[in-house]
Amino acid sequence: MWPHSDLLFLRQLRGKDSQGEEVIKPYTPTTLDSDVGYFELVIKMYPQGRMSHHFREMREGDYMAVKGPKGRFKYQPGEVRAFGMLAGGSGITPMFQVTRAILENPIDKTQVHLIYANVTYEDILLKDEIDSLAKNYPHRFKVYYVLNNPPEVWNGGVGFVSKEMIQAHLPAPASDIRILRCGPPPMNKAMAAHLDALGYTSEMQFQF
């Protein structure tokens, strides 16, 4: 299966909201194309979310309409020296998929640096899996967590992701690096402004 250029496979899921109206929403699997026969999704449930309602109503054994894959992120092993990643909330899912694909490919030596922002510690998705990657690939993968409301004992970042955090934890601007970002629209906008101010060109940036 290696090397492969299509790391990101979006799936469109179809359901019904609390009013019975159809909802179609894309999700990024956390599994890879090499995981044959199934795919896994990380779903963040919202009290008023239209698709969240559908998932709350589902029971084990139920079927769901799925369309895809589509919206692929193109990448070849060794294409860049390092990736810097800026993720917020459920925006971690494409980052996790790309990171897994890179680290688990025995011929890919690309470095990955992730800044992952959330409101509280409990909001951190896939933390055990991310920490396991950091432990298993200590020389290739680094993660820095940022929380708006951290617990009393916390050694990560506090507040919003700043230019200083990006400078400290992501690779510096260069022709052989790429910065990926995925999060809520306000975060994406703020991160784009930080990256531009720090000298990252548009060619060095990609937003999911």
Rank of each mutant, 00 (worst) to 15 (best):
A82V: 12
T93V: 11
G68E: 10
M95H: 15
G78V: 09
R81N: 12
I92C: 01
A82H: 06
G88M: 01
L86P: 00
P94L: 13
G71P: 15
A101W: 12
M95P: 03
G71K: 09
R100D: 03
A87V: 09
M85L: 11
F83E: 00
G91Q: 02
V98F: 09
P69E: 03
F83V: 04
K70V: 05
A101L: 08
R81P: 01
P77F: 05
G88I: 07
G88N: 06
A87L: 13
K70R: 13
G71Y: 06
K74Y: 14
T99M: 10
V98W: 03
G88Y: 01
I102Y: 07
P94D: 14
M85S: 02
G71M: 06
A101H: 13
A101C: 14
G84H: 07
T99L: 00
I92M: 09
P94A: 13
M95T: 14
R100C: 09
G89I: 11
G84Y: 04
L103Q: 10
Y75F: 15
F96P: 03
M85F: 06
G91L: 02
V80H: 06
T99G: 12
R72Q: 03
F73Y: 15
Q76G: 06
F83W: 04
V80Y: 09
F83H: 03
P94Q: 14
Y75G: 07
R100G: 01
T93M: 02
E79K: 08
S90E: 05
T93E: 11
K74H: 15
I102P: 12
I102S: 08
P69T: 05
Q97E: 12
F73A: 02
G89V: 10
I92K: 03
V98Y: 01
K70A: 10
R100F: 04
Q76V: 08
R100Y: 06
T99V: 14
G78K: 11
M85Q: 11
K74L: 13
G68M: 12
Q76R: 14
L103D: 10
I92A: 00
K74Q: 13
G89P: 13
T99R: 01
I92S: 00
G84Q: 05
Q76I: 13
K70Q: 08
R81V: 07
V98N: 00
T99Y: 01
F73E: 01
F96S: 05
L86M: 03
L103I: 06
M85E: 01
A82K: 05
P77T: 03
R72W: 00
G88C: 04
R100V: 01
V80M: 03
G68C: 10
G71Q: 07
R81L: 08
G68V: 08
V80E: 02
P77R: 03
T99K: 04
G84W: 00
L103E: 07
M95R: 00
I102R: 05
I92F: 07
Y75H: 15
V98T: 15
S90K: 00
G68Q: 11
G68K: 11
P94C: 14
G78R: 12
G84V: 05
I102G: 06
L86C: 06
Q97M: 15
G68H: 10
R100W: 06
Q76H: 13
P77E: 05
K74T: 08
S90T: 15
M95Y: 15
T93C: 10
G89E: 06
Q97P: 02
V98R: 06
